[in-house]
């Protein structure tokens, strides 16, 4: 199958523009990224600059791939990352638009590659638990309710790809932050630092220039891991309670 690509090309400090490329004789069962590899091979062989895009595991689990395909983060398939999108999802002769994740907090480094360091700084602000190192604790020494364990596991499925930010018209990072906060807040190991975590992660999120949530739920639809907006409601609830406890009463959930 043959498709035409409209690819966003942008160098540092440049405004950016779309370029058209032809991808010929694609195998319908090749992945979208393999198709881009082939196009890049041709570009390199003809002495042109290849298209820069981010990728690593190509198994849908690392969260590196970050393409907006035909206006949808990670392309047309439901709960699938760009790397697990195959050419059989498109038709022969299609014109496919490929853009980077667009958000002020994710500046374009080059072409389709964006800097998602803002996510790392949010994790550094509170996406951890503080434990003294030593030998591993005995299994099951801390009882965890099954409901909490399951919910925490659902939240922990987030691979931090940033498709939620890319899908949001406000460039909000609430789905990511809520999943990362809930993953730890739901467990007894994370409870001690719950209030501090929520305030620090939300504070960093705001400082990084992400927009605010207007509950359109475009993020949930784009998420390759099926993180639900229930976690956003939980983050809103936890943030309100943490604010009242910390700022108004001068106490803490653990106190």
């Amino acid at each position: 199958m043959n498709v035409t690509l409209k690819v966003w090309r942008q160098s540092a400090g440049e405004k950016g523009r779309f370029e058209r490329y032809e991808a010929r004789n694609c195998n319908p069962n090749m992945s979208f990224l393999e198709m881009l590899d082939e196009v890049n091979e041709d570009l390199t062989n003809s002495g042109k600059e290849p298209i820069v895009f981010e990728h690593d595991c190509r198994e849908g689990i690392c969260g590196c791939c970050s393409l907006v395909i035909n206006g949808e983060p990670h392309g047309p398939e439901y709960r699938v990352a760009s790397c697990q999108t195959y050419m059989r999802s498109f038709k022969d002769g299609d014109v496919i638009t490929i853009e980077p994740f667009r958000s002020k907090a994710f500046p374009v480094i080059k072409d389709l590659l964006v800097n998602r360091g803002a996510f790392d700084r949010i994790i550094q602000a509170g996406g951890f638990i503080s434990v003294s190192t030593g030998s591993a604790p005995d299994a099951n020494s801390i009882p965890v309710p099954k409901v909490s364990a399951d919910l925490s596991m659902d939240a922990a499925a987030c691979i931090g790809c940033g498709a939620c930010v890319a899908a949001c018209k406000n460039g909000a990072a609430m789905l990511f932050v809520s999943a990362k906060a809930a993953h730890l807040n739901l467990l007894p190991q994370g409870l001690a630092e719950k209030d501090r975590r929520v305030l620090a992660m939300v504070g960093t999120m705001d400082a990084e220039g992400f927009g605010s949530c207007s509950n359109t739920y475009a993020c949930e639809a784009a998420c390759p891991k099926g993180i639900t907006v229930d976690f956003i409601a939980k983050l809103n609830r936890d943030y309100a309670l943490a604010s009242v406890r910390t700022k108004l009463l001068g106490t803490d959930v653990a106190a």
Partner: peptide, 28 residues
């Protein structure tokens, strides 16, 4: 205040965005 902040958080728009969000939620 939210609209100004949120418009600033997405400085460049997609060529033709395909959003799963309801029309009402996008045009509040």
């Amino acid at each position: 205040a939210l609209t100004l902040e949120n418009n600033g958080a997405r400085p460049v728009d997609y060529l033709r965005e395909k959003s799963a969000a309801s029309y009402a939620s996008r045009t509040m």
